[in-house]
């Protein structure tokens, strides 16, 4: 019930971690899948969600509209994802490979089969970071371009461009696969 939801938000504002966890339980899977679409592997995705949860719990007292909890969490998670993506750029620029614990040179893993072999989901990796972000928000949450713009900070018209290009790319990929 809506009143229960508002009550949970009010309790979470007071530092009630269980109340926050109940709010989180309604959306946590979609949060994880969103992060997974946009990051290289499952661990990074889980890290991003954990970071976002910690920040959100610390800052929930600043949430003015209780009904905006989900969108607000997505904005925070988007920021975490972007930060992680920036680290990928730094690592890629500085090294093309790195040492593992045994001192052997290994390539930086890109996907590590994060989609567990589901080929159609693997095709998402052919999209650019911004295209993936817009596409995943559109698919997972049904967000419109304006809603995606609010969550990511990307201009609405640019969002529409990313969405259109992303879908075209996927179309090409799947067409080539199944020709």
């Amino acid at each position: 019930m809506r009143s229960d939801f508002s009550q949970l938000v009010r309790q979470a504002r007071k530092g009630d971690s269980e109340a926050f966890a109940k709010l989180y339980s309604e959306i946590y899977k979609d949060l994880y899948y969103y992060a997974l679409c946009n990051l290289n592997n499952q661990d990074d995705a889980a890290d991003a969600v954990s970071d976002a949860v910690i920040d959100a719990f610390a800052g929930i007292k600043n949430l003015k509209d209780e009904n905006a909890f989900k969108g607000w969490m997505i904005r925070i998670l988007t920021a975490k994802i972007k930060r992680k993506q920036a680290e990928y750029v730094q690592v890629r620029d500085n090294t093309s490979s790195m040492e593992n614990d045994e001192g052997e040179i290994i390539d930086i893993p890109v996907s590590e089969g994060k989609y567990m072999g589901i080929e159609i989901l693997d095709r998402i990796e052919s999209l650019s970071p911004n295209e993936k972000m817009c596409f995943s928000l559109n698919v997972l949450y049904g967000y419109t371009s304006d809603e995606i713009s609010a969550a990511t900070g990307i201009n609405s018209a640019t969002v529409r461009t990313h969405l259109a290009r992303g879908k075209q790319k996927l179309k090409r990929e799947l067409s080539a696969e199944f020709e």
């Binding site: 966890a21 946590y28 899977k29 661990d43 949860v53 989609y115 159609i120």
Partner: peptide, 21 residues
């Protein structure tokens, strides 16, 4: 398809409660 993927245990609501505590 996405929802068939497993979510790591550490993101479960119970473990998140522990994390926040």
């Amino acid at each position: 398809l996405m929802h068939e993927l497993p979510v790591p245990d550490r993101l479960s609501p119970e473990n998140i409660t522990l994390l926040l505590e």
